[in-house]
């Protein structure tokens, strides 16, 4: 079992949902990213999504676009991102790390070289936003062979036929994009998310993560009631931008929000556990 599957199983057994922060690797630099990863684990997160910066992040809103620009300006690239994971792994062998980014840097490195280097660094899952399962056969096979999970997105526009195909290609968990839009957008329709997550559970046993548009503790708690994992990205990255230049304040701002979310998720009634109501029932 992969590190992701083990962690998701532990959470499921404990009746809890995973809290999954997203930060951009190299924003503002390598050392602060590694330190922040450890601090987030201390604040109670279960898995970390590490953004790989790309010059043309088509699926991201302005907050994460700017983080990518800052990281690239600081010299970040895919190899250095893997270096960050390797450094993190020296002190943390249990927290799963998922890389999230775009395909072209991986194409440039070469699928095989990337799969080998990423597995060697301790990466557990890879989500390439602009690589749908239709184009992903070779890449998915290489990731699996190297012991990593290919993570794929599902969205409000995904048809049932596509949903089945995507879940078949994925392992570890599937990631439901909770709104039509880019990262950091507002206006979540909670009932709609609950219905869609239920529909996903009808076609797969994989854990379901939900992300996009989750910016505060109450929202995280309501998401945790329906999903196995709650991903928070832009809300953290925005705090990092606000406290750029002050590593301590930056860390405190990020961990404070995560701790609030953790607490709200764990104390929320009707959270998603083994005894919970049929998956997908709106709660919170």
């Amino acid at each position: 079992m992969s590190r992701i599957s083990i962690r998701m199983q532990e959470l499921r057994d404990g009746g809890r949902s995973a809290l999954v922060p997203y930060i951009m690797a190299g924003d503002p630099d390598v050392d602060q990213t590694v330190a922040l990863m450890h601090a987030m684990v201390e604040a109670g997160v279960d898995m970390i999504e590490l953004g790989v910066p790309f010059s043309d992040p088509m699926a991201d809103g302005p907050v994460i676009q700017k983080a990518a620009e800052r990281a690239l300006a600081g010299g970040m690239n895919l190899r250095r991102v893997l270096g960050i994971v390797q450094q993190f792994r020296r002190e943390d062998a249990r927290t799963p790390v998922v890389l999230m980014g775009y395909l072209n840097p991986v194409e440039r490195m070469g699928y095989e070289a990337f799969a080998e280097a990423a597995a060697g660094a301790g990466v557990d899952g890879v989500l390439t936003v602009d690589l749908p399962p239709e184009e992903a056969d070779t890449f998915t096979r290489l990731l699996r062979t190297a012991g990593m999970d290919p993570i794929f997105l599902l969205s409000p526009t995904t048809t049932e036929t596509r949903m089945r195909a995507v879940c078949e290609a994925a392992s570890g968990f599937v990631y439901y994009v909770s709104l039509k839009g880019v990262t950091g957008a507002a206006s979540l329709d909670m009932d709609d998310v609950a219905r869609r997550v239920a529909a996903i559970r009808a076609v797969t046993d994989l854990p379901v993560g939900v992300g996009f548009g989750i910016s505060d503790a109450p929202t995280a708690a309501r998401m945790a009631a329906v999903a196995d994992a709650v991903v928070v990205g832009s809300a953290l990255v925005r705090r990092m931008e606000e406290h750029a230049g002050d590593p301590v304040q930056m860390r405190d701002a990020v961990t404070a929000l995560l701790a609030q979310m953790r607490q709200a998720m764990d104390s929320s009634e009707g959270r998603n556990g083994p005894e919970a109501t049929p998956a997908g029932a709106p709660g919170g």
Partner: peptide
Amino acid sequence: GRFVSETLMH
């Protein structure tokens, strides 16, 4: 090909 995020596939 078609290399876009899931929301645009359908």
